[in-house]
Design a protein around this nucleic acid. Structure first.
Lengths: 337, 337
DNA sequence: CGCTGTTTTGACAACGTTGTCATATTCACT
DNA sequence: AGTGAATATGACAACGTTGTCAAAACAGCG
């Protein structure tokens, strides 16, 4: 039982292909009588307009679809960004392909290729790779591209970023303002640009106070919260342990909390995290964080992409979405003397 | 600068359309020499195979794409289900459209319509509506459909569900086993099938001990965690307040924790929640929950859908994914006498 | 060298739709 | 009734690809 086509509808309504096409697309110039006969036929046959075929012929070959590539759709931040973009797209009648890259740059290439083959009009991506020059070709072929969360490399594109560096500086200075001078830094993989930026913000903060970076207090390339917990226990075992910890990512923050609890130091050692953590307000002490605004990020990304789809040809822009410091207690613990 | 087509490649390689098509699709019967000439031309022109056009002609009109409709992509459970399905699909070269329904049944209809127009081969949905008879038409036209988390109504389809009722009974009995007899129930909108099932599980548990349901202790139609907090404060103000609370959903659980803390009763009143809550192990007391297994749910859903896409015509099946009780402390608090 | 059988290649129609353009119909006006 | 303009309708090609089938090229053989 093959799907009915416009041809079947035309036959049943006793008219031509083109007239049915006009009715389906709401084009003017079809008499009311014929129009309703066509609609009846559509109803009776259960006809569904075939967008695949329609897009093929339609001008410009636009598919009214976009792709979203995020690091991991099940990370709360990425999911919130995805949700916002998806909602804005659907209001415009644009459908959304969504995939996770899982920090795999091969996968990034494959998925971009797959989206190109499906002729998406645009792409919003949180890249995993470190060289995006291959996208030049895609854009030349008409794909609009917007980067979120991480900037493009060797490629010029609109991007919506977060003030990783400055936000971190603010967080570290907050700890200093509460009397800390031995502040540890725990960060994600250095290969991730945002992680590197956050580390730079940490260094900035120390330098602004003429303090040197103590390599013993810096733990990078942390892959998950288990690993972060181990790092905390290591830090606490030092001769001169830190009095405060800056955790540069949400999973890291969670691991740090676990580690501090195990060592029963959570009321003694201060903690500021980058990224909000779910239920961060219900812990004891509650966690002071620099929160990102996923809705604002998603909105800006979608807005920028849609402007490009609508023909905006102005120079590419970078938007920085500010972070908000949420003071809850863990970051305000003072060192013991 | 229009995208190059197979025709442009053929011209450059000095051969015919069909031969290029064969090379692109890896079909046998093209000499090595010609094949590599074609590949060189593809490379030089930056040709991208157009799947839209290809699918149009291809047998059966399969698009190698599926749609996922979840309640909300930014809910951790839904996001995890989405992630699992997306990964399994991408391993098969199937692309995924993903959208949130936000408990809006009109949106459900619109999105199904939109997916139908884009000719997805299959659909995995966590429905918002309560009558799915409209899907009969879609399936007749060749769309395979699998329900997750919530069962279909007035429509027969494969479904992957969670043991809401039995899981809840187990959780409530767990509270009884710790000496509680005044156990409150706080649940989501009754119109959501899973919420209704969970309430039934609560009633089952009480009846199994010949206890009556005290309407004062039942608060349903809770929309968010703020609302749940208010409900808790209301319960605590009763003449005979409950000694234990069963929270039937993750956001509800979070609200309950807030309420109990505000009233400083979190170490006195027992709490068991349905759905795991992020960082539930780090709270004091840690939260005892019935955890769902989103990976297992997603895997079963994807597996079932792909079997249907591969031609499985056996009768529809319902898979129940069991919940796991995670004992952490809040559910083991005993009542004071 | 001609015959057969196999492999490689290409011409052409088809997939379901829309753009273009020509024709048929209607209407207002002289 | 006749004219011109406006409106409604349809025939046909085109979008970029693949399925079908026939033709060309090649190989093996007596």
């Amino acid at each position: 039982m093959p799907r009915p086509t416009i041809r079947d509808v035309a036959a049943l309504a006793g008219t031509s292909l083109k007239t049915v096409s006009r009715v389906v697309n709401g084009e003017p110039g079809v008499s009311d009588e014929l129009s309703s006969r066509v609609r009846a036929a559509i109803e009776r046959l259960g006809y569904r307009h075939n967008l695949t075929a329609s897009n093929l012929r339609r001008s410009g070959g636009k598919t009214r679809s976009v792709g979203i590539l995020v690091a991991n759709v099940s990370n709360p931040l990425d999911a919130a960004v995805h949700h916002t973009i998806e909602e804005m797209a659907s209001r415009r009648g644009i459908a959304v392909w969504a995939s996770s890259l899982d920090e795999n740059s091969t996968r990034e290439r494959q998925l971009v290729e797959s989206f190109a083959q499906r002729r998406v009009d645009g792409l919003i991506m949180m890249p995993a790779s470190h060289d995006h020059s291959y996208l030049v070709e895609e854009r030349r072929m008409g794909m609009s591209i917007v980067f979120v969360d991480r900037p493009p490399a060797f490629f010029d594109a609109d991007s919506v970023l977060v003030d990783n560096r400055f936000g971190t500086t603010r967080g570290v200075k907050h700890l200093m303002a509460h009397g800390h001078s031995r502040i540890a830094f725990l960060g994600d993989r250095r290969s991730i640009v945002t992680a590197a930026e956050r580390f730079r913000g940490y260094v900035d903060a120390l330098e602004s106070m003429d303090m040197a970076v103590d390599p013993q207090l810096v733990r990078q390339d942390i892959l998950d919260s288990e690993h972060a917990r181990d790092a905390v226990l290591g830090l606490l075992a030092l001769d001169e342990p830190p009095t405060a910890i800056y955790a540069a990512q949400n999973l890291v923050t969670i691991g740090v909390v676990r580690g501090l609890r195990e060592a029963a130091k959570h009321h003694e050692i201060a903690l500021v995290g980058f990224d909000d953590v779910p239920m961060g307000d219900l812990l004891e002490p509650s966690i002071t964080v620099l929160a990102q605004d996923p809705t604002a990020i998603g909105q800006q990304a979608a807005k920028t992409l849609f402007a490009r789809l609508d023909g905006d040809r102005s120079p590419t822009q970078t938007y920085i979405i500010p972070t908000t410091m949420i003071i809850r207690g863990s970051g305000e613990i003072r060192p013991r003397h």
